[in-house]
Amino acid sequence: MKPAPFAFLRPAALEEALAALAREPGAKVLAGGQSLVPLLSMRLAAPSMLVDINALPDLGHVSVDAAGVRIGALARHAHVLASAEAAEVQPLLAMALSHVAHPTIRNRGTTVGSLVHADAAAEMPMVLRLLEGSVDVASVRGRRTVPAAELFAGPLESTLAHDEIAVEAFFPALPAGAGVAFAEIARRHGDYALVGVAAMVETEGGEVVRARLGYVSVSDVPVVVDVTDALDDPAGKALADLEPAEDIHATAAYRAHLVKVLTPRVLADAIHHARQKTAQRKKS
């Protein structure tokens, strides 16, 4: 469990990091390392170079404004989770982050790193997709913004080019009249979910006008399902778009069952949350 040899670069400027990635096709970006380092140690990945971005300036921010939450590439999960402002503007962030692994991993792992790792069993890619957020990426060719809907290409595969670095993620604020909820079932506390579900609903005058659900661990890529027209059987609608699979921890049938159990609960919680938020707004 020792990595194969690799070159190591720890640039002090983003341009330097981007230049290194551009000239070294076998290079990988190292941020929190919570996924990459185990892959290296088990020799499941053998990049020719690691470009460690931990010394880059100005990437550790969690900035919050009325539009939403902007999370820099070096902001750790724990940092985002601890931000009361972020939780206020977009409550789903904290709801989901508390399910991301364990405190020690959250202390090191980065939220943006988790997004571009593009694991459909991870919470944050699905959350970005459900909230219709985006990721800003940089390369020697310049910068671009990738909407969440265009970020995930396949299992553990993002649409980022090899030489691009995700520098910031944007999670939009919770709109007025909207509510969110999250629940997941895992074998042990902090494990990858067997099934995770998040909901975001928008209400007008207490009535649901838009309802969308996001799922963890029941598909190859983060899946979001619009159930606005299927509020009486949201799980049925969702399952048509999901691909629950069997692994050593659960059968496909059990995962499908958990989708059926969790979906109405989470949807109801989100509706409740929306009404609560609306009531709070009216008060203040």
């Binding site: 079932i185 074998r187 067997l194 921890h249 659960a250 059968t251 049938a253 059990y254 069952h257």
Partner: peptide, 11 residues
């Protein structure tokens, strides 16, 4: 026994 197996037994 795991929850998945208990679920299968219930069925």
């Amino acid at each position: 026994i795991s929850p998945s197996e208990l679920f299968a037994l219930r069925l």
